[in-house]
Design a protein around this nucleic acid. Structure first.
Ligand SMILES: NC(=O)c1ccc[n+]([C@@H]2O[C@H](COP(=O)([O-])OP(=O)(O)OC[C@H]3O[C@@H](n4cnc5c(N)ncnc54)[C@H](O)[C@@H]3O)[C@@H](O)[C@H]2O)c1
Ligand SMILES: NC(=O)c1ccc[n+]([C@@H]2O[C@H](COP(=O)([O-])OP(=O)(O)OC[C@H]3O[C@@H](n4cnc5c(N)ncnc54)[C@H](O)[C@@H]3O)[C@@H](O)[C@H]2O)c1
Lengths: 231, 231
DNA sequence: ACGCGTTCGTGAACGCATTCACAAAGTCGA
DNA sequence: TCGACTTTGTGAATGCGTTCACGAACGCGT
């Protein structure tokens, strides 16, 4: 409850460099999880070294990343765990609860809908939507599946800003367009397709096949150099 | 069946720079998918520009990436789609079929087991493993769930090199250790934990909560600057 | 045969991210 | 109070990835 004051006295008052590098942003959730573990284990403070090993990175990276949030460490001691959790949560916008709509309640969609990780991380599933008439009305994870024609209404009434796409690849762009039109400004795509979104809409993807193929590449490397047996 | 000859006459024979940058490797699967679409649409050749727009990147990146595989383009024309598919598949090691063991057949594990994307991308699920005795013996996606004590045997007899972890976070490191001990050299982790693996084992992760939190950060940015209302 | 238009392949420039390394700033025991 | 010790915060150095920009190579029409 004092970080605004801290910000006010931050160095170089004129310089507005509140930009946190994307690579740092991607690590903040990892730190957050590591800190939860440390807090449960009874740690009150943690050094950059300690947090680094818990998060699987090196300590210089931790310090640089955290420095983008402000100067919340104490030299000779480290960081106070609770305070750091608070600041990271704040930077990530996790102090408020974001609402999510999940489109495509099939094989994967069912697993996602039933996944406890949404709620525990502060995300609320505001609605489940599917195009298959035989799925509409079905109860999944305590929610009723709605028709795709109700998407816009779900987004509006549920104050939804994040859309999750778990439809087949062929339908993903169409669904994406509908989500954007309905007012969603962040999309997480599980379908193996490249999606186009207008400026102002953030898009991230989770791609199982891609991950496996990257592993395949490294497996291939490991199993003796394959195409270098010439001459 | 002629790329070894091609490699042999590659420029700077003494310099052994067959290393493909990790960032390029991560895009090759995307190109592969884009090329499949182009092939279906009847394209025989494609320019770097055409492939770039299909893959959602810019053309300089495409050319640079493909140049790491060799010189398979024709100036003034572009790349032959079929040939490129072949070379990328080869570079990724997709000419052979990799076997996968899936550990943790719960909510998410069921979805993964039933996912057609494994087979169509050339990956074979050699076994499903779970620690819950009440799950062992269950039929899932045409396979019988085996006990965790059988993991080593499944890996050995199935010639498994890739392990997928879909257990709760608390069990992930233990499962990871078992996989490594059994001889698995690549691991894809769905549990929200940092895993430790020895050198020589590749580890990748898919982290839903992390993705959502990154989106949350950007949502937060968009909805007016939040913590800058001081003074 | 030849020139024109197209597109690749790649060196060079640039920018972002990581790592190094150390002065500054704090704690803590005596 | 003070000095030894710990750890942060950050400039500088380095490394990696992206983008630029253009010469070289090729197809094609004439
Ligand atoms: N199952 C997995 O483990 C897994 C893993 C990785 C990626 N994926 C990807 O996730 C997506 C979903 O996979 P799945 O196994 O759940 O498939 P699925 O076929 O079981 O489910 C797809 C659902 O989307 C619905 N749908 C289709 N078109 C729609 C539209 N226009 N609007 C709204 N809903 C629509 C269908 O009715 C169906 O319920 C696919 O793109 C798949 O490649 C799945
Ligand atoms: N469900 C989702 O959509 C989703 C999404 C993202 C991430 N995840 C993560 O994936 C993991 C699995 O999620 P879930 O929803 O399927 O959970 P779940 O509880 O439904 O399934 C976990 C399974 O793992 C088995 N298991 C537990 N300990 C084991 C061990 N030592 N060895 C082998 N098997 C063991 C359990 O018996 C169970 O069948 C979790 O870490 C979760 O955070 C799930």
């Amino acid at each position: 409850m004092s970080e605004q004051g801290e910000f006010a006295v931050s160095p170089s008052i004129g310089g507005r460099h509140r930009e946190i590098p994307e690579a740092s942003v991607a690590r903040l959730p990892v730190y957050l999880r590591a800190l939860s573990g440390l807090a449960e284990a009874g740690h009150v403070t943690v050094s950059s070294e300690g947090l680094a090993s818990a998060a699987g990175v090196n300590s210089a990276k931790v310090r640089k990343d955290l420095s983008h949030l402000g100067s919340y460490g104490t030299r000779g001691v480290g960081y106070e765990v609770d305070e750091l959790v608070h600041h990271i949560s704040n930077a990530l916008g996790l102090t408020q609860r974001w609402s999510v709509v999940l489109v495509g309640v099939g094989n994967l969609g069912h697993a996602l809908a039933g996944y406890g990780g949404f709620a525990t991380r502060g995300f609320r599933i505001a609605g489940l939507v599917d195009a298959d008439p035989s799925r509409v009305g079905e109860q999944v994870a305590g929610l009723t599946v709605r028709g795709i024609d109700e998407l816009s209404e779900v987004v509006r009434t549920g104050d939804v800003s994040i859309g999750v796409i778990a439809t087949p690849a062929g339908a993903a762009q169409e669904v994406c367009d509908l989500l954007v039109e309905a007012g969603v400004t962040s999309i997480l795509n599980f379908a193996p397709t490249v999606l186009q979104v207008p400026d102002g809409v953030d898009l991230r993807k989770v791609d199982l096949a891609l991950e496996l193929q990257i592993l395949s590449f490294h497996e291939n490397r490991k199993s003796g150099v394959p195409a270098a047996m010439s001459s």
